[in-house]
């Protein structure tokens, strides 16, 4: 039950993009087309879950026992950078089509604040191992959901008559605001 609450909270109620403002750059940058939004969402979810696992192990097995938790920020970001690089190499070796589909999005994930934010939030809230993993899955699901909805809206928006100064990023942000309002409807769920 506890795990379900963590999942729903990360995916819907406290959606990473629309209520924690984590991962706004890809949210605005890659939400032009539904297909690339899905690819980006999947790649990010994958890295989020891996980060949740690795950063939990790093924090609870190395940093805390040896009182090195002041090194949290540099060690987390290095682990994430290494992880993204590693995932990129593995995917390239294992599945060429998947690599081509995700290719350009993978390096971008390192600087996605959702990833580092997840590691920091999980450490701050002192989640146990399983909770961290579920938190990662939920955050990934929420990120993908927001990205895909946004991409769907933006495909329609291309046909709309938006005043010129507002085209592109400004109207995307305003639509995101309305979307955030809609997501507030989930607030009563937990």
């Amino acid at each position: 039950m506890e795990l379900l609450i963590i999942f729903i909270s990360a995916a819907l109620v406290n959606n990473f993009v629309l209520s924690y403002f984590l991962g706004i750059c890809p949210f605005i940058g890659v939400s032009n087309k539904t297909s690339s939004a899905i690819s980006m969402g999947m790649a990010t979810t994958f890295v989020l879950v891996l980060t949740a696992i690795v950063s939990w192990l790093l924090y609870n097995l190395i940093l805390v026992p040896y009182h090195l938790d002041f090194l949290q920020i540099p060690s987390f970001i290095l682990v994430i950078a290494a992880l993204v690089q590693f995932v990129e190499m593995v995917i390239k070796k294992v599945s060429q089509p998947l690599y081509r589909a995700l290719g350009i999005f993978l390096p971008l994930i390192t600087t996605n604040c959702a990833i580092l934010g997840l590691a920091l939030l999980a450490a701050m809230r002192e989640y146990d191992f399983l909770e961290s993993v579920i938190f990662g899955v939920g955050a990934g699901a929420g990120f993908t959901l927001a990205l895909v909805i946004m991409a769907g809206i933006r495909e329609e928006l291309d046909l709309a008559d938006v005043p010129k100064p507002f085209q592109g990023a400004p109207i995307t942000l305003i639509v995101a605001g309305i979307l955030a309002l809609a997501f507030m409807g989930f607030a009563g769920m937990i």
Binding site: P170, L173, I174, A180, M184
Partner: peptide, 21 residues
Amino acid sequence: LPAGAFIVFGLLMGFSNMYVE
């Protein structure tokens, strides 16, 4: 609320574009 942040930022960016134009 989060929604306000998005909307204010979008409007500001739009108006600054308008001014430049």
